[in-house]
Structures are given as C-alpha cells and as structure tokens.
C-alpha cells in the first residue's frame, strides 16, 4: 500500500541547535606558518628593488608600509576565519560551515556521496593534519573540501561516511 503522510514543516529536524565541531587548532599554526613564508617571499623582491632602484625615501617607505599591512592581515586572518569553519556529523548527512563576511552552510546527504578522499601535503603531515574531500555527482562543482582536520579524525570520518554511503545504497 502506497502511503504519503504529510510532514509539517516546523516538525522537521532543523540545524539551529547543532554542536559544531571545530577544526584542529594546529591548522591555525600551519596556516600562519605558510603565510609567513609567503610574506618573506614577497619581502625579498621589495628589498632588492628598493636597494637597487634608488627610490625616493617616501616611495620606499610606502612600499614597506603596504607590505606591513599585508603581512599583518595574513597573520591575523587565520585567527579570524578558521574558528568560523566547522562541521557537524549527523545520522544522515554532514554539514559544513565557513566564511566571515559571506557565511555559508553546506549540507550533503550521505546517500548522495559518490566517493570520499583524504589527502595530506608534507606540511599537513608535519602538523598531523589531513584534508577530507567529499564528491557528489555533477562535475567539479559537486565537491566539498574540509581541510585542517586531525589526520586520525579525517580517517575516522572517511570510514564512517563511506559506511553510511554504502548502507544507503544497499537499502535502496
């Protein structure tokens, strides 16, 4: 017998009172480290140019001031943006949020996941971190990337999600 009971919209499970899991705090340090390498890499050409080209003092000062602002931003930004990121694992889906100015929350039901991938760069491994990628159908726009997870957490998540995805396919 086919039944189609009506569901009231306000009885639906909502996502307001969920416990957001934060990323590994080591990720903040890693991002700061990576950014400082970038800052130094930019400083080198500025130093050579100002030394060789014999700029007036004001121009050189402005260049360095710009560099300082840039450096300060890159060092402070991970502290602002990374705490805004987080994920929630629920029984039937995973939620991921991010963004400071433009905030977004993405939800992927497990029964739409095609495959799961974990990866880690040499930097990541140094800090015991990993990136988890979830692929759904629909080309390259259909991926969710969660970086800065603890390596063990990422592996657990991978296995858990794969199991869930597999179970939903078997039930179908």
């Amino acid at each position: 017998m086919f039944r189609n009971p009506e569901i009231a919209l306000d009885e639906m499970p909502d996502t307001d009172d969920v416990q957001w899991q934060e990323l590994d705090p080591a990720y903040k340090r890693l991002r700061r480290l990576q950014n400082s390498i970038g800052i130094l890499a930019v400083a080198a050409p500025i130093a050579t140019v100002t030394a060789l080209a014999n700029f007036p003092l004001l121009t050189a000062a402005m260049l360095w001031a710009g560099w300082l602002v840039f450096a300060a931003f890159l060092l402070v930004w991970p502290g602002i943006s990374l705490p805004k990121r987080g994920f929630v694992l629920r029984d039937k889906d995973i939620l991921f949020r991010k963004g400071v100015v433009w905030r977004s929350i993405t939800a992927i039901p497990f029964n739409r996941i095609q495959h799961v991938e974990t990866s880690s760069t040499p930097f990541d491994r140094k800090f015991d971190l990993a990136t988890l990628k979830l692929f759904t159908a629909g080309g390259s726009s259909g991926d969710l990337k969660i970086d800065g997870l603890n390596a063990a957490t990422a592996e657990q998540l991978r296995i858990f999600i794969l199991e869930k995805a597999g179970a939903s396919i078997e039930n179908a």
Partner: peptide, 14 residues
C-alpha cells in the same frame, strides 16, 4: 534529486 544544499549569507543579508 538534489545532491547538496548550501545556504549563503553575506553581512548585508545577515
């Protein structure tokens, strides 16, 4: 048939 859903809010929208 939806694969994923995203809700986005800018500062202004918030």
């Amino acid at each position: 048939k939806v694969q994923r859903v995203t809700i986005t809010q800018s500062r202004y929208q918030r």
